[in-house]
Design a binder for these strands. Structure first.
Lengths: 198, 198
DNA sequence: ACCTGAACACCGTTCAAGT
DNA sequence: ACCTGAACACCGTTCAAGT
């Protein structure tokens, strides 16, 4: 069988049998569709025709559509551990560099369509929503901690961290409508938030 | 006509014929479903069974599902003119009160589920996305103008207005995961943004 | 173990026919 | 003018049968 199944993910890394698919293959293709064409493009029949198999094949690997979505979520958030590990790496930096790096990450982040798609999807899937909440809280904690280290009081740090993180989340959604801040403007924002009273 | 059709929107205001529905009835019921149960709950068959009619009835009033959605969008944004008119009313206020009112509106706004639902929906419907963009840009312009009136330079005002509006948008999405700012904290945020250099 | 093929339920869509 | 009833396409789901 020399037929090159024109399906996605042509990563021929010693699959058990030539044409056979794994659950991971389905999840990967589903994640790709989710990222590139949005939530409503993820359909079993679409994946089947992309892979050139029938739906029965899908139902061998997954109980139902939600199971596929959960697998995609696990896949996405296991990659997203990179972002979380990025958070860990960031915590080792000196405070001011740390805040600059985080602000740059919030605004300049990779895969924005992906981020927005996942958050939209989170509204329909509680397990995804929980994962997004965890990530947001973790980011808030790191930013808050940074302001505390800079010498701000608890309430001062809370206000500054909240403003910055909410703005970052808003940026994921609103950037298509509103002007995107430049690097210089990000510097100004941080200078503004790090300024001391009086 | 004592028969109380148990459908939604029981606003008996002299309908042309007892049991007959108008396109507006469908849009109103659809908007209600959208707000209360989310985008994926808005289904023609669901509305039909709620109204106690067949699908043919729906297709008398609308060309297809997208036409229903457009009608819902028009309905929503005509109500949302209240918010836009709120914007107009707000422009008459003295600057500092104006900013406080807007910040309070962003955070304390009515119908949050509705706001988030509409923005989610905007990702799938370009006409809705355009309406949301218009509203966001309008808000940004008003906030930006306020900072200019306070004596800030163009770039200073842009940074401050952008930060505040992005945070407001982020709040619509992130408030389920992150702590909700108190009234005092909103005051602090504004004080922070209105503080002059040096 | 992995997939085909044929069936079914559900939902959007069409249309001729009713009042 | 507004709706019924019956049809069809599409998609998720099931399952017996194939290799």
């Amino acid at each position: 069988m020399t037929q090159a199944t024109t399906g996605p993910g042509g990563t021929d890394e010693a699959s058990p049998r030539p044409g056979r698919l794994s659950a991971d293959d389905w999840a990967r293709a589903g994640l790709h569709l989710l990222m590139t064409e949005g939530r409503q493009a993820v359909k079993i029949s679409r994946l089947c025709s992309d892979f050139g198999v029938t739906k029965g094949s899908f139902y061998w690997h997954f109980a139902d559509f939600d199971a596929l979505m959960s697998a995609i979520a696990r896949l996405y958030f296991s990659r997203e551990l990179d972002a979380a590990r990025g958070l860990v790496a960031v915590e080792a930096m000196p405070v001011e560099e740390r805040l600059e790096t985080m602000a740059a990450m919030l605004v300049d982040s990779r895969a924005f369509e992906g981020e927005a798609a996942v958050r939209e999807w989170a509204r329909a899937d509680e397990s995804v929503a929980a994962a997004v909440r965890d990530l947001d809280q973790r980011i808030l904690r790191v930013v808050h901690e940074a302001f505390v280290e800079l010498g701000f009081s608890e309430p001062e740090a809370r206000v500054r961290a909240g403003l910055l993180v909410y703005a970052g989340i808003g940026f994921v959604y609103g950037r298509s409508a509103l002007p995107v801040p430049t690097v210089d403007e990000i510097h100004e924002i941080l200078a503004l938030l790090m300024r001391r009273d009086g």
